[in-house]
Write a protein that binds this DNA or RNA. Structure first.
Lengths: 139, 139
DNA sequence: ATCGCTGCAAAAGATTTGCACTACC
DNA sequence: GGTAGTGCAAATCTTTTGCAGCGAT
């Protein structure tokens, strides 16, 4: 597992910005220094770094758009292995004050809490592959 | 703006499940009752319903994968208009107890708070189009 | 010489769009 | 008859994969 020029620059690019860039944006940045890098190397490297836990993705899953008809009770439990997602409600969370640090960044309209972990099923099975959401149980 | 058979069934499908389905999954469900519906109608209808605020998407944005090298301070401010996203930290949020309702769904490893709202720039401009993240400022 | 890494090009997957057809007021 | 909604097929966009060449051990 080598620290190549490309890999170093790709990591540097993500590490040095505050903007949570997507792959395309990382590519633009890296190309200023390494004009020959290709988008697929960026993807490969980003997921590699994520596997090594050197970076994370914003959303814990690699996802397509998902929809939700529950307009209340806006907190979610998400299984980081299989994508199982359910709403939950909590008194305590409903009344959280908006943190000052968040307010500095803009006008906050709502706080959404995401509880990440393993659903019951995955917690008992524990394998190690990164799974995709087709395995999610549906009700 | 009509309530067609398809639209009613698509809404019903999302409203009746707890699983936050993606478009493909909605299609499967609706097809049991309306075999002729097509995937593009499902998409069109889902986004229509979202525009009407009858349903929501799980993530506030229509997004591609985004990456993050900050492994601490895991809370995010997200501008629902332009996608501007920044970390923020907060003492209070770090010590939140894990809600019992979440614990029922699985083994919770961490709570992530997302503060949704309008960034400073969007808060001053206020237009009404759904925007995409290319407009995000990058630093 | 081998093995992993890269770039290219093509493939795959997800979502959107153009267009002609249908249904309804 | 006109307008909005649908289905189909093709287009687009994002991400992944196969493969051949390259570079470092």
């Amino acid at each position: 597992l080598k620290v190549t020029h490309q890999r170093a620059e790709i990591f540097r690019e993500v590490a040095q910005t505050l903007s949570h860039p997507d792959a395309e944006t990382v590519l633009e940045g890296v190309r200023r220094r390494v004009p020959s890098v290709s988008l697929d190397t960026v993807y490969r490297t980003l997921w590699l770094l994520a596997d090594l836990d050197l970076i994370r993705t914003l959303s814990p899953l690699r996802e397509r758009a998902r929809f939700d008809a529950n307009l209340e009770g806006h907190h979610h439990f998400v299984c980081v292995r299989c994508g199982f997602t359910r709403d939950f409600e909590s008194e305590g969370l409903g009344t959280l004050p908006i943190p000052a640090a968040a307010r500095k960044l803009g006008r906050v309209q709502a706080l959404h809490v995401e509880a990440r972990g393993l659903c019951r099923k995955c917690a008992s099975q524990r394998k190690s592959t990164r799974t995709h959401r087709k395995e999610e149980e549906k009700r």
